[in-house]
Design a protein around this nucleic acid. Structure first.
Lengths: 194, 194
DNA sequence: CCTGCTTGCTGACCGCTGGTTGACAAGAGG
DNA sequence: CCTCTTGTCAACCAGCGGTCAGCAAGCAGG
């Protein structure tokens, strides 16, 4: 079998399995068994479990980024709203996998990688806030809100008793509230995509 | 050495080490070596790593609960404010250990335990909110805010460029903002201790 | 046809982890 | 003196992430 073809196949299968079991409940031996190859061959294509997970994560992140790309012709507040909506739609398509990915963020080996993703996202939002984005309280508020976002989404997925529209409105209002609470003018809410 | 005495000593030492290294970066063999006993003896006192961690966590939780107990003679809004202040003071005394505990929450084996702690905390806050506490959006908002709280605290610990007063004001305003965003009246903010 | 090199692939192994077990030493009570 | 309980540990287990020597097959050159 060709090198690239097999690699792509393995990545696809691994992505699926990670989304089903999470990072630390899934062993390399299991992945190899599911793909009907030896563990050593799996290590031939991916140098470590951490890197394999990263590759699977990045594949998803690229697709997500395309889907939530804000429309720069819209006013800033609209951009935030539609980007958030696109994000929630994306989550709604794969709720269990998203939940497992959030869980996996706590695993020792991938904590730093996932943390970096969050830092990048926060930086994007902060950059859109202009000078307010440099104030420590605003930085903490944006980090806090990203955690709020994920926790609220987990609750949404788990209980299933809210509409996407309700959640969207609550998240958006909380974002504005957090910015105001941090002392930022909260004026030009420019979009931050994920 | 007496049974209870040794057990207490081991618990103390383990609490210290967990606060220093986190759950998954610390092995039972290391704990045993630090206490100058064999691993098997450690397992004689605590049936599993998970239970040992739980015991260490509970010891801290009891102390914390005493310190943040709200004064029921104060008006509800005051109770929230002073409880939050007491909590931040507690964190400020052991910032690194608190951060490590938050990190440890992601480890597979203790995730459920830590999740339960958070559910209990949320329940306490929701109970204080009266009828609004039963609305799905408010429940999600409270869960979200608890995550906001921890993320903002991590940012505060990591960067060290905010005063406790600033953080306190930001967290309190965000809490009110989240409640309003969830559609709750936000009126009688009754205290929820940790 | 044979030889030799590359390439895809594997079984067996390593050090570590959380967790278990059988046995030894010591003190108490008869 | 014997026995029973209690504290203690070395040695072991299966599973983990990760490594390595070597097999099998296809292709090139003589």
């Amino acid at each position: 079998m060709q090198n690239d073809e097999r690699r792509a196949l393995l990545l696809e299968r691994a992505t699926e399995l990670f989304g089903e079991h999470g990072y630390d409940a899934l062993s390399m031996a299991q992945i190899a068994r599911a793909a009907k190859i030896s563990k050593a061959l799996l290590y031939h294509y991916f140098p470590s479990k951490h890197k394999l997970f990263e590759a699977a994560l990045m594949a998803g992140a690229i697709e997500l980024r395309e889907r939530v790309q804000p429309d720069p012709t819209l006013p800033p507040a609209e951009q935030v709203s539609t980007t958030l909506e696109a994000f929630l739609l994306w989550v709604e398509e794969r709720p269990k996998a998203y939940a497992k990915m959030l869980e996996s963020a706590g695993a020792r080996e991938v904590r730093e990688t996932m943390g970096q993703v969050r830092v990048d996202t926060a930086q994007l939002i902060l950059a859109g806030l202009g000078p307010d984005g440099e104030r420590p309280a605003t930085r903490a508020a944006v980090f806090g809100w990203l955690a709020f976002l994920d926790a609220a989404i987990l609750d949404w997925i788990e209980h299933g008793d809210m509409t996407r529209q309700e959640l969207h409105a609550m998240l958006l209002a909380t974002f504005a509230g957090a910015l105001i609470a941090s002392g930022a003018g909260g004026a030009p809410m420019v979009a931050g995509q994920r």
